[in-house]
């Protein structure tokens, strides 16, 4: 009997190599860093001790220690000694979080995330154009920011809420939850270019086109306006990414 699939010995040994504590420290670190950046662990929260953390996560104490060292190096945790001491969460500035994420992201990852985001939100726009009632579309008008508005935060919140509202108009809770996830994950990056007045102007036009398309039930136009917007935003973001990485 011939071996149906020859697996090279190198691939084999990689598969069956012990996972070890090396990868675990990174996983512990990522999990905590994610919780701090997303705000689940708030500024000033006390982290469990190294020993408690190790027990809770089922890793060796040395692994928990390694993760904490790295979090300290990233400025996400501060440790004080003595009575009342311990490790405390240090919430980063939201702008720094976005830049930090962008700086650690490869171009291929950016494109990967952008592709997923694009497919999800254009799909939502199509279904919303089919399913939304006129009064529901009318409500979206409130999310169209006046072109001369200078508060970038308002632009970002309004755009995020516009896309969430479009997702909700699909009448699918799962799709909406996916967009909530996408907004938290990629939306914050995608809205970096809104700090630029020219980009805001162009965005305003595309969002108005989207709401008009939803109002008239024009599936193709709804899709196009979202696709145009995300594509432009990703192009600009990729340029910013290049600058941040250099």
């Amino acid at each position: 009997m011939a071996n149906p699939r020859a697996i090279t010995s190198r691939a084999r040994s990689a598969i069956f190599a012990p996972i070890g504590d090396e990868g675990r420290a990174v996983r512990v670190e990522n999990r905590l860093a994610e919780a701090i950046r997303s705000g689940v662990l708030a500024d000033g929260d006390r982290l469990p001790s190294e020993l408690e953390l190790a027990q809770m996560l089922g890793v060796a104490t040395v692994t928990a220690r390694e993760a904490l060292v790295s979090l300290r190096a990233q400025g996400l945790v501060v440790t004080t000694r003595g009575r009342g001491g311990g490790s405390f969460v240090r919430a980063p500035d939201p702008g720094d979080v976005v830049k930090g994420r962008l700086a650690t992201m490869s171009r291929v990852e950016l494109r990967d995330r952008a592709s997923l985001y694009l497919v999800v939100v254009t799909g939502c726009a199509e279904l919303a154009a089919e399913r939304a009632a006129p009064d529901e579309v009318e409500d979206l008008q409130d999310l169209l920011v006046p072109v001369d508005e200078e508060d970038v935060g308002r632009w970002r919140d309004a755009e995020s809420e516009l896309y969430l509202s479009v997702a909700a108009l699909t009448q699918s809770a799962r799709l909406t939850r996916e967009v909530v996830r996408q907004e938290a994950d990629f939306g914050t990056l995608l809205r970096v270019p809104l700090s630029e007045p020219d980009f805001r102007q162009a965005s305003a036009g595309r969002h108005r086109a989207l709401v008009a398309a939803l109002g008239s039930g024009d599936v193709a136009a709804a899709r196009t306006s979202v696709r145009d917007h995300v594509t432009h935003a990703v192009e600009r973001l990729t340029e910013i990414h290049e600058v941040v990485r250099q």
Partner: peptide
Amino acid sequence: VPGTRDAIDYTR
């Protein structure tokens, strides 16, 4: 609002 820490204005 997901991804930010701003409160959603539910009055809409």
